[in-house]
Design a protein around this nucleic acid. Structure first.
Length: 581
DNA sequence: CTGGGGTCCT
DNA sequence: AGGACCC
């Protein structure tokens, strides 16, 4: 009785309909960012190129038959007028990706990134709040519905998914209005289905899946390879078992599958094949590793290796400073030339590094962190490659791992400062992303700095608002439905972080991320120079030298970005607010 | 020259 | 440290 009931729930776990998951996928993401940087490209066939590969292209180019992941030469043949932009440096894409994720976090703290252009959002809680506070609201589905809905599930998922579709619509609207990015969205009761249904209407559309459509969706997949979780290797194994269609996977004997793939994977794939997935949306936090790679034709001299690594390290240090944490280890990766094994076989070595390299107050003047790291890198390289014999590399990578949060204690002022800079840049995103909302209601948006924290309000609120009484004034549900009419800023409270960030701003109406170096104390200047700016070519770029204190204000972002990139930020931030103060 | 990133598991 | 997976 009771046992049977529980059993039913358990075995049903992966296919129950209790959650509402939205999957958002930016349309041809890199190409979109490039078109934001340079709007003249919008009407032209545009491809983004990494080395000899066209990693994505806009929809104008797709009309010529150009596809993702084509060789550039093939794409050019199909579309001789194709405009190509280089996309090896992911910096701008990463920044836009961060803004998108921050925007989505207004709806739920459960946001999981997949690559730079996709996000899963678990909106179950927001849906529940909406249904509770708005039980008379319309139950229209926004966007497409996948398959038929003639038979309605009676567990309440119909209403939940309807509200989910409305939330997804609002998310896409805000992404478009505030960031200029168009997305597709899929709404379903688990991650697998949300992702699969997302891609059924492209571009810039959304689709909702109800239980009645699940079977059709799964069986309409062309190949087992279309299932997220089945990659190159697994699909080859399946192929050898004579399995290529989803239906074959659904019907194969489980024991047979376990023998080929192992129990864990076999059981997972069996469930996936019928649309069952109990994976939770795991909030993406700080990355476990931060790395850069460069592929090339041939490197066979140690000096070339060192040069490459130095450039990589230099760029890496910027990403590291923005992250704000201290790495505990560094890893070097190489790919050796090997014409037999096509597949990218890589070898790597890693070693721990002393945190003192990143702490304020590095005792010695002559050797900076950069040189020590480069030495470590070359040592690791020698562990992989015996340079007394000829070698031929086609890729070099450097990555930091084993991160440790920077000491927040009273110990170091630098830790505070560096932390603030990263907070500041996050807040800058928020400022930009909020502006669309602000502009619609309060034309008197002074104090732009004070409004910046508000995107995080809803997560904070729902937690503390477990209040019993009928004063659900500010639920997340109210927020997303009323966002066009209501001010987001009315409930803002200043946090210490905000104050500190404000203090770092220039008083001349410069962008929020400006830092006036001359106003920082000598100690802080020194520490910043030491921990972030010790790279020779970087200091060149910034127009500062080792023995002169810069007397002009500098913007970290502006100086590190390309000109083209500046246009993007200018455009996105162009209404960033009156020259306040 | 089939990219430049990431994740988790073994 | 490598291998699978994701984009």
């Amino acid at each position: 009785m009771e046992d049977d009931f529980d059993q039913t729930l358990d075995s049903n776990y992966g296919s129950s309909h209790d959650k509402v998951i939205v999957h958002l996928d930016a349309d041809c993401f890199y190409a979109q960012v490039e078109m934001l940087k340079n709007p003249e490209l919008r009407t032209l066939p545009l491809g983004v190129q990494q080395k000899n590969l066209l990693v994505t292209c806009n929809y104008v180019a797709r009309q010529f038959g150009v596809k993702k992941c084509m060789l550039v030469s093939d794409a050019k043949r199909l579309c001789p007028s194709l405009i190509l932009v280089k996309g090896e440096d992911l910096y701008d894409y990463r920044q836009m990706s961060t803004k998108m994720t921050l925007l989505l976090q207004k709806f739920s703290p459960l946001v999981e990134k997949l690559g730079l252009d996709e996000n899963f959002v678990d909106v179950t809680q927001l849906v529940a709040e909406t249904l509770k506070s708005d039980f008379a609201g319309s139950r229209n589905v926004e966007g497409h519905i996948y398959g038929d809905i003639t038979s309605r599930c009676d567990c309440g998922c119909y209403e939940r998914l309807c509200v989910g579709s409305q939330i997804a619509s609002e998310m896409r609207k805000q992404l478009k209005e505030e960031l200029g990015v168009t997305c597709c969205a899929g709404v379903a009761y688990n991650k697998l289905l949300a992702k699969l249904v997302c891609s059924t209407h492209k571009p810039n559309q959304q689709t909702t899946l109800f239980p009645a459509g699940v079977s059709d969706l799964m069986l309409n997949l062309n190949n087992v390879r279309s299932l997220p979780g089945i990659g190159h290797r697994t699909s080859e194994i399946l192929q050898s078992l004579g399995i290529s269609s989803i239906e074959q996977l659904q019907n194969i004997n489980l024991e047979l599958l376990e023998h080929a793939l192992g129990r864990t994977l076999a059981e997972r794939l069996k469930k996936l094949s019928v649309g069952a997935d109990d994976m939770v949306v795991k909030p993406t936090g700080k990355p476990q590793s931060i790395g850069l790679e460069d592929g090339f034709r041939k490197i066979s001299l140690e000096s070339e290796v060192k040069d490459k690594c130095e450039v990589l390290l230099q760029r890496l240090m910027i990403l590291l400073a923005e992250d704000g944490r201290i790495p505990g280890a560094i890893r070097v990766t190489v790919r050796k030339y090997d014409n037999s094994s096509r597949y990218s076989h890589r070898e790597s070595r890693q070693c721990n590094i002393p945190s003192s390299l990143f702490l304020p107050k590095v005792g010695t003047l002559s050797s900076n962190a950069h040189n020590k790291l480069l030495t470590s890198i070359m040592k690791l390289f020698h562990k992989i490659i015996d340079i007394s014999k000829p070698f031929h590399l086609t890729l070099l990578g450097v990555a930091f791992t084993k991160f440790q949060e920077r000491n927040t204690g009273k110990g170091s002022i630098t830790s505070f400062l560096v932390k603030d800079i990263s907070v500041q840049s996050v807040m800058n995103f928020q400022n930009i992303s909020l502006h669309g909302v602000e502009a619609m209601e309060c034309s008197s948006s002074k104090n732009a700095g004070k409004q910046s924290g508000s995107t995080l309000n809803y997560a904070d609120k729902s937690g503390s608002e477990s209040e019993p009484e009928p004063s659900p004034k500010k639920t997340r549900a109210d927020f997303w439905r009323g966002s066009r009419k209501r001010s987001l800023t009315e409930s803002d409270k200043d946090s210490p972080n905000k104050h500190r960030s404000s203090e770092l701003r220039l008083s001349t109406g410069e962008p929020i991320n400006e830092v006036d170096f001359s106003k920082l104390s000598d100690g802080i200047q020194e520490e910043l120079m030491e921990s972030c700016m010790s790279l020779p070519s970087l200091t060149d770029k910034l127009g500062i030298s080792d023995n002169s204190t810069p007397n002009t204000s500098m913007s970290i972002e502006d100086n590190f970005q390309t000109n083209a990139s500046q246009k993007l930020w200018k455009r996105l931030g162009s209404n960033q607010g009156p020259q306040d103060q």
